[in-house]
């Protein structure tokens, strides 16, 4: 990166705005080096910072009807259109009632103006290890829906990410929706994000959803941001909790496992050691809170 001028975009490219999803998929199938513009809050920052994206065509997917809507699915879950703005979702009554920590995590992102622009699909496709909407979606058991000229496939959110900025998506695919399963009874969730001030991106974040069966854990899912090269689903550590009786000792033991498992990096403003210590602290906090929210009591 040379001298930076964030006043203008120096890269040159063509702009297209397909009117329908079919037209957009045609463009992706026929043209090379197409980047999708949705909210622009990551793409345009990269362009302005001089990143070489190799973009010949910016494809604007705003206004494509198929990419909008927050609709109940047949099994009682929710289908969220990928181009829905973060602000629309954090204030959506169904999202708040059914997936409270998704709404909470969205509300804690950036600023109102950025959330008026940014989309949930963009937060996934940008594939930052920090992505705040991803942890809650992983814990609620979300899938992403990918469409291309060849057809449609769904991928579990925990298997969508490969490394920073890279997902399992092919160049001819569009992420069309996030699909969440129906919430279950006696379920509690919690989300925490550590940042110096609120608009900051997370130094470390954690999400947890616990399904309770009396005084035992029926199922637990935890995910973390900013502790690995991709949003990290703590599948094994979470799965070990299934069937166990909840206790302060179990929480402490699990928090220690989380601490030992994560391998964060240090970057500007946050050391790896700090992230590791915080992982222990917030894992403990989040398990206690999710358990409490599920209606459980700690002995």
């Amino acid at each position: 990166m040379g001298a930076m001028n964030t006043k203008v975009i120096e890269a040159e490219y063509d702009y297209v705005k397909p009117a329908s999803l079919d037209e957009a998929l045609d463009i992706l199938a026929e043209k090379e080096n197409v980047k999708i513009y949705a909210g622009g809050t990551d793409l345009l920052v990269k362009l302005k910072m001089g990143a070489d994206l190799g973009m010949d065509i910016m494809m604007d997917i705003n206004g494509i009807e198929d990419l909008y809507g927050v609709d109940k699915t047949a099994d009682g879950g929710l289908r969220i259109g990928a181009a829905e703005k973060i602000w629309n979702l954090e204030t959506n009554a169904d999202v708040i009632a059914m997936y409270p920590i998704l709404s909470e995590a969205m509300h804690l992102m950036a600023s109102v103006s950025v959330r008026n622009m940014a989309t949930i699909g963009g937060n996934f496709c940008n594939a930052s290890p920090v992505a705040d909407t991803v942890g809650p979606c992983m814990c609620y058991g979300a899938c992403v829906e990918l469409k291309s000229k060849k057809g449609v496939r769904t991928v579990d959110a925990t298997e969508f990410f490969l490394k920073p900025g890279v997902t399992v998506m092919e160049a001819d695919e569009i992420l069309t929706a996030i699909i969440l399963p129906a919430p279950e009874e006696n379920t509690g969730a919690a989300f925490t994000k550590m940042a110096r001030v609120r608009p900051d991106i997370a130094k470390v974040s954690i999400s947890c959803v616990i399904k309770r069966d009396g005084d035992a854990i029926k199922d637990c899912r935890m995910a973390m941001g900013s502790v690995a090269p991709k949003p990290l689903f703590l599948g094994d550590i979470s799965a070990e909790l299934a069937g166990k009786k909840m206790s302060a000792a179990l929480i402490e033991e699990t928090a220690q496992k989380v601490h030992d498992f994560v391998k964060p990096i240090g970057d500007h403003g946050t050391t790896a050691e700090y992230r590791k210590e915080m992982a222990h602290l917030i894992a403990k906090e989040i398990l206690e809170k999710a358990w409490e929210n599920s209606g459980g009591e700690l002995a």
Partner: peptide, 8 residues
């Protein structure tokens, strides 16, 4: 509100 510096 939107940030006009990031809107094409």
């Amino acid at each position: 509100s939107v940030m006009s510096c990031l809107v094409p």
